[in-house]
């Protein structure tokens, strides 16, 4: 699931809920709202008998307001449930973006350290090779100078042997 074997960021994607639970809760809340808001509960239904239609118009009005309030509460719950889901998703986007940026910068810092180590190593190696090369050239030059001096001395000695030097 995560790229742990390289310098690739491990943050792959924001982790979010599918929203299925939020949608179910919203549907439930909407269903309850419809139930509490159904006017038939509060209107006098004479066909069902006096027992159901008990109470006067005042009681019916109060019951209607109570039902409206209950329905409104469920409607608000339905809105709030989905809103919370969207908030969580948006918050996750920010959390993911921040985390990924943080990790990417940490990786950049690590890569910088790696490059520093490699650069130091390369430059030190180059310096040693240059010093070795110079020392070899120095030895070669000394050898050649000495050789030329030897040849001159030898010629002089040969001439001197015959009294010509």
């Amino acid at each position: 699931m995560f790229a742990t074997g390289s310098y690739t960021p491990t943050y792959a994607a924001p982790i979010k809920a599918t929203g299925e639970v939020a949608r179910r809760q919203r549907n439930d809340a909407m269903g309850q709202m419809a139930f509490y808001g159904d006017n038939r509960q509060y209107n006098q239904d004479t066909s069902a008998g006096k027992g159901v239609a008990a109470g006067g118009l005042g009681a019916q009005f109060r019951a209607s307001l109570t039902g409206d309030m209950a329905a409104g509460k469920r409607a608000t719950q339905a809105q709030a449930g989905m809103l919370d889901f969207l908030k969580d998703s948006a918050g996750e986007d920010l959390r993911f973006g921040s985390g990924r940026a943080e990790e990417a910068n940490s990786l950049s810092s690590l890569l910088l350290d790696r490059d520093k180590i490699n650069t130091d190593f390369q430059l030190n190696t180059q310096k040693r090779r240059m010093e070795n090369s110079l020392a070899a050239a120095q030895r070669d030059a000394e050898e050649r100078s000495a050789e030329m001096a030897r040849k001159a001395r030898t010629s002089q000695s040969i001439l001197g042997l015959f009294g010509l030097a």
Partner: peptide, 30 residues
């Protein structure tokens, strides 16, 4: 470093050339 080495080598060669010329003169006059 290379310039230093080249200078030293040049001096050595010039000295050797001078000695060789000296020998040639001595040979001729001798």
């Amino acid at each position: 470093g290379m310039a230093d080495i080249a200078t030293k080598l040049s001096i050595g060669r010039k000295n050797a050339d001078a000695a060789a010329l000296d020998n040639a003169v001595n040979f001729t006059t001798g």
